[in-house]
Amino acid sequence: MNTKFTYTDKKDTRSGFGDGLLELGRTNPNVVGLCADLTGSLKMGAFKKEFPERFFQVGIAEANMIGLAAGMTIGGKIPFTGTFANFSTGRVYDQIRQSVAYSGKNVKICASHAGLTLGEDGATHQILEDIGMMKMLPHMTVINPCDYNQTKAATIAIAEHEGPVYLRFGRPSMPIFTPANQKFEIGKAWKMVDGKDVSIFATGHLVWEAILAEAILAEKGISAEIINIHTIKPLDEEAILVSVSKTGCAVSAEEHQINGGLGESIANTLVRNNPKPLEMVAVKDSFGESGTPAELMKKYGLSAENIVAAALRAIERK
């Protein structure tokens, strides 16, 4: 199979966050880190070691962590909170809503182990509703990068952005297929592959699956355009509309519930501007379960093959 992007190395996206945070620690004295008893899982250990006075261990008390972070912005700090995506959103929604978003605080909510690829821990920890919850909050920026390099670049970029950000990443080792030291532009979609028959909009871990799907579709003589939507809010509506006006149909792909995710945001954009067939690759209103990441992605329909099938359906509906 001839993919347009290749890789030689694999790494988890959370390590991109950890390494990005360490770099920020060295370049921006206002960056502080908070963690709710998951320093190792969030890869915040190196930051903690090098900047102990700027690292705050809060224990298993996520609500307090969000409040502390809001308070730390008063006096000029840029707090990065770290815990699992489940405990970064659903558990602390009201604290984020009132003390961070409504109060316009410059807090970066950094969330690991998002989605099904958390794996064996099962559905209690596999949050699939976090993008929806976060994108609904006024003032909130929502970012879901695709690999180690993009996550590191996004981590560094959000420190320069004034305002609350939700940064979502994951646990498993994934191909590193985007360039090191890339420039990350919040809200700017990245057209990775040019195509003419179908637009595939993917976010997070599903971007690599979309790259694989493009190669399979090419073998069938179908030209797919692959667009990396690393920023779900603000959504790059212009990039979406330009692409779909060319291809005439679209597929969205995400490790999230079909309700409230990227697909829904794209549907919203298309319906208001240029209604065209859209097929959504996402979890169909169910909880996950224990299993390996690969088994789960297959069972819940989030693999390259599912993107291919969705692309064929979308083209059929043109």
Binding site: F56, A63, N64, M65, I66, G67, L68, A69, A70, G71, M72, T73, I74, G75, G76, K77, P79, D94, Q95, R97, Q98, S99, Y102, S103, K105
Partner: peptide
């Protein structure tokens, strides 16, 4: 300096400001 109304959040915010 911060919105309040939904109860229980102000002490955490104050502590964050105090640590800074």
């Amino acid at each position: 300096r911060v919105a309040s109304g939904s109860l229980g959040q102000g002490l955490s915010v104050a502590l964050g400001a105090a640590q800074v």
